[in-house]
């Protein structure tokens, strides 16, 4: 319920373009959720860079996907098992589904532990230095999508 409202707000807000798609920008790039399952259109219109996406998935301050997911990244010693193994995820999900998963996982599953990587409001007691910021910039979301799409 609350989640749907938030998503609608995100769509509805009039948005000035974030400077360089910077994660520090207060306003988000406009996006549209279709059928509550997917965000078909790219957030930036620019193709993602899979190589950068892989590095972001490892980076503890950015995607940190490895905290919860096993991934085909053998040089990293510890992979979490809170979430599913993402090997093959590129074949299981469409690009739009992956985008919604990353932007705001709770639209798909309100109880999930997976953070919303492209959301900056509606949180409780955010530490000052993270206030108003998203975990990933719009382009970083696209980079990770490009990487996960290679996992077939």
């Amino acid at each position: 319920m609350g989640i749907r409202t938030l998503a609608a707000v995100a769509v509805g807000v009039a948005l000035s373009l974030a400077v360089n798609g910077d994660a520090a920008a207060a306003k988000l790039v406009k996006y549209k959720i279709v059928d509550e399952t997917s965000i078909p259109k790219s957030l930036t219109g620019k193709p993602g860079d899979a190589k950068k996406g892989r590095a972001l998935a490892i980076n503890r301050k950015k995607g940190n996907c490895l905290a919860c997911h096993a991934m085909p990244i053998p040089e990293q010693p510890f992979h979490g098992n809170i979430g599913t193994d993402l090997s093959g995820a590129g074949g299981r999900y469409s690009e739009g589904e992956l985008r919604l998963r990353l932007v705001d996982s709770k639209v798909v599953n309100p109880d999930t532990i997976m953070p919303a990587f492209y959301k900056n409001t509606g949180f409780h007691r955010v530490l000052k230095k993270f206030k108003g910021k998203t975990i990933l910039s719009a382009q970083e979301v696209e980079d990770i999508i490009a990487y996960v799409k290679t996992l077939k």
């Binding site: 953070p115 955010v126 975990i135």
Partner: peptide
């Protein structure tokens, strides 16, 4: 739930006790 990662104590220590978060 709290913080920018939007997690409650229970998300880690009830729902996922026994699982690995990286190391």
């Amino acid at each position: 739930r709290r913080g920018a990662l939007d997690m409650a104590c229970s998300n880690c220590h009830i729902d996922n006790a026994g699982k690995n978060a990286r190391a």
